[in-house]
Amino acid sequence: AEIMKKTDFDKVASEYTKIGTISTTGEMSPLDAREDLIKKADEKGADVVVLTSGQTENKIHGTADIYKKK
Protein backbone atom coordinates (compact mmCIF):
# COMPACT_ATOMS: atom_id res chain seq x y z
CA ALA A 1 0.00 0.00 0.00
CA GLU A 2 1.12 3.56 -0.58
CA ILE A 3 0.58 6.54 1.69
CA MET A 4 -1.17 9.48 0.03
CA LYS A 5 -1.79 12.97 1.35
CA LYS A 6 -5.49 13.72 1.83
CA THR A 7 -5.32 16.55 -0.72
CA ASP A 8 -3.84 14.19 -3.34
CA PHE A 9 -6.25 11.38 -2.50
CA ASP A 10 -9.26 13.68 -2.84
CA LYS A 11 -8.42 14.04 -6.55
CA VAL A 12 -8.72 10.26 -7.14
CA ALA A 13 -11.10 9.24 -4.32
CA SER A 14 -13.80 8.12 -6.78
CA GLU A 15 -11.46 5.32 -7.91
CA TYR A 16 -11.29 3.76 -4.42
CA THR A 17 -13.54 2.15 -1.82
CA LYS A 18 -12.86 2.61 1.90
CA ILE A 19 -12.23 -0.77 3.52
CA GLY A 20 -11.37 0.27 7.07
CA THR A 21 -9.32 2.28 9.52
CA ILE A 22 -5.97 1.33 11.04
CA SER A 23 -3.84 2.80 13.81
CA THR A 24 -0.44 2.51 15.39
CA THR A 25 0.77 3.49 18.85
CA GLY A 26 4.06 3.07 20.64
CA GLU A 27 7.51 4.31 21.38
CA MET A 28 8.86 4.49 17.84
CA SER A 29 10.13 6.95 15.29
CA PRO A 30 7.75 8.59 12.80
CA LEU A 31 9.33 6.44 10.07
CA ASP A 32 8.64 3.26 12.05
CA ALA A 33 5.05 4.37 12.61
CA ARG A 34 4.65 4.95 8.88
CA GLU A 35 6.07 1.50 8.10
CA ASP A 36 3.75 -0.08 10.69
CA LEU A 37 0.70 1.57 9.09
CA ILE A 38 1.77 0.37 5.63
CA LYS A 39 2.29 -3.17 6.95
CA LYS A 40 -1.18 -3.21 8.53
CA ALA A 41 -2.72 -1.83 5.34
CA ASP A 42 -0.99 -4.50 3.26
CA GLU A 43 -2.29 -7.22 5.60
CA LYS A 44 -5.84 -5.98 4.95
CA GLY A 45 -5.35 -5.82 1.18
CA ALA A 46 -5.39 -2.02 0.91
CA ASP A 47 -3.92 -0.13 -2.02
CA VAL A 48 -3.85 3.34 -0.43
CA VAL A 49 -3.36 4.70 3.10
CA VAL A 50 -4.58 8.21 3.95
CA LEU A 51 -3.39 9.55 7.30
CA THR A 52 -6.21 11.00 9.38
CA SER A 53 -4.35 11.91 12.57
CA GLY A 54 -0.92 11.88 14.09
CA GLN A 55 0.38 12.82 17.50
CA THR A 56 3.79 12.78 19.09
CA GLU A 57 4.53 13.34 22.74
CA ASN A 58 6.32 10.55 24.52
CA LYS A 59 4.76 8.05 22.14
CA ILE A 60 3.62 8.12 18.54
CA HIS A 61 -0.04 7.62 17.73
CA GLY A 62 -1.33 7.66 14.20
CA THR A 63 -4.54 6.64 12.48
CA ALA A 64 -5.33 6.22 8.81
CA ASP A 65 -8.19 5.25 6.54
CA ILE A 66 -7.41 2.48 4.07
CA TYR A 67 -8.82 2.09 0.58
CA LYS A 68 -8.93 -0.54 -2.15
CA LYS A 69 -9.05 0.32 -5.85
CA LYS A 70 -12.52 -0.28 -7.34
Score class of each variant (00 low, 15 high):
37 L>Q: 00
27 E>Q: 11
43 E>V: 07
70 K>D: 05
38 I>E: 01
56 T>L: 11
68 K>L: 08
6 K>R: 11
4 M>Q: 00
64 A>F: 13
12 V>M: 06
11 K>G: 04
44 K>W: 13
55 Q>S: 12
18 K>A: 06
65 D>C: 10
59 K>L: 15
33 A>F: 10
43 E>L: 12
11 K>I: 08
58 N>F: 09
66 I>V: 05
57 E>F: 07
63 T>L: 08
4 M>A: 01
17 T>C: 15
68 K>A: 06
4 M>W: 08
36 D>K: 06
26 G>I: 14
42 D>M: 15
20 G>V: 02
22 I>A: 02
2 E>W: 05
24 T>N: 05
9 F>K: 00
33 A>H: 05
25 T>A: 11
34 R>V: 13
65 D>Q: 04
63 T>G: 04
2 E>P: 03
15 E>I: 06
32 D>S: 06
61 H>C: 13
16 Y>D: 02
3 I>C: 06
55 Q>K: 08
46 A>G: 04
50 V>W: 00
8 D>F: 05
6 K>M: 09
68 K>I: 14
62 G>F: 15
39 K>L: 06
67 Y>S: 04
34 R>G: 05
9 F>E: 01
27 E>I: 12
12 V>I: 11
21 T>V: 08
69 K>I: 04
35 E>K: 13
28 M>D: 06
43 E>Q: 10
40 K>N: 04
31 L>W: 08
3 I>R: 01
23 S>W: 12
56 T>K: 08
7 T>A: 15
35 E>W: 13
1 A>Y: 00
14 S>I: 07
52 T>L: 09
13 A>F: 06
5 K>L: 14
44 K>L: 15
58 N>Q: 10
46 A>F: 00
14 S>E: 10
58 N>A: 12
68 K>Q: 11
48 V>A: 03
17 T>F: 14
41 A>E: 01
10 D>K: 08
8 D>G: 02
65 D>M: 01
22 I>S: 02
27 E>Y: 13
61 H>V: 15
12 V>C: 07
19 I>H: 01
61 H>F: 14
48 V>K: 03
43 E>H: 07
21 T>D: 04
26 G>K: 12
35 E>N: 13
1 A>F: 02
51 L>W: 07
27 E>K: 13
61 H>W: 14
12 V>T: 03
15 E>A: 08
55 Q>I: 14
23 S>I: 09
18 K>T: 04
32 D>P: 03
7 T>L: 10
23 S>C: 15
20 G>Q: 00
69 K>H: 10
39 K>P: 01
31 L>Y: 09
30 P>E: 14
11 K>C: 10
20 G>Y: 01
62 G>D: 08
31 L>K: 14
3 I>N: 00
68 K>Y: 05
5 K>N: 14
70 K>T: 09
31 L>M: 11
40 K>G: 01
52 T>E: 08
61 H>D: 12
22 I>K: 01
7 T>W: 08
69 K>Y: 05
63 T>M: 10
50 V>G: 03
50 V>A: 00
54 G>A: 13
54 G>K: 07
56 T>P: 11
38 I>H: 03
70 K>N: 10
40 K>D: 00
33 A>K: 06
12 V>Y: 05
7 T>P: 08
29 S>C: 10
21 T>F: 07
59 K>P: 13
26 G>R: 10
34 R>S: 07
16 Y>C: 03
66 I>M: 07
53 S>F: 14
30 P>S: 14
69 K>Q: 04
5 K>M: 14
63 T>P: 07
64 A>H: 09
68 K>S: 04
23 S>D: 08
52 T>A: 09
66 I>R: 02
15 E>S: 09
63 T>C: 09
33 A>E: 07
50 V>N: 00
38 I>D: 01
66 I>S: 00
34 R>A: 10
29 S>L: 08
64 A>V: 07
26 G>E: 12
62 G>H: 15
31 L>Q: 15
35 E>D: 07
34 R>D: 06
13 A>L: 05
51 L>I: 15
20 G>I: 02
11 K>N: 06
43 E>C: 11
68 K>P: 03
50 V>Q: 01
9 F>L: 03
9 F>Q: 00
43 E>R: 08
67 Y>A: 04
26 G>Y: 09
7 T>F: 08
4 M>V: 05
14 S>R: 09
66 I>F: 05
59 K>V: 13
60 I>Y: 12
19 I>W: 03
22 I>P: 01
32 D>C: 12
32 D>G: 08
23 S>L: 08
4 M>T: 01
21 T>H: 06
42 D>E: 12
46 A>M: 01
14 S>L: 08
6 K>C: 07
16 Y>E: 02
28 M>E: 07
17 T>A: 06
61 H>P: 09
46 A>S: 03
52 T>N: 11
6 K>E: 09
7 T>E: 15
10 D>P: 00
47 D>E: 05
63 T>A: 08
67 Y>R: 03
39 K>W: 04
33 A>P: 05
48 V>S: 02
52 T>M: 10
45 G>T: 04
37 L>G: 00
50 V>S: 01
13 A>S: 14
50 V>E: 02
51 L>M: 13
63 T>Q: 11
58 N>S: 12
58 N>H: 11
26 G>Q: 11
32 D>H: 09
15 E>Y: 11
32 D>K: 09
25 T>Y: 11
47 D>H: 11
24 T>R: 04
13 A>D: 03
2 E>G: 05
9 F>P: 00
53 S>G: 12
48 V>C: 05
23 S>A: 11
20 G>T: 02
34 R>Q: 10
41 A>H: 00
44 K>D: 03
60 I>P: 09
53 S>I: 15
40 K>W: 07
16 Y>I: 02
38 I>Y: 03
38 I>T: 03
30 P>G: 12
35 E>Y: 09
15 E>R: 09
1 A>G: 04
44 K>A: 15
11 K>T: 04
26 G>P: 09
28 M>Y: 07
62 G>W: 15
34 R>L: 15
17 T>Y: 15
25 T>K: 10
7 T>Q: 11
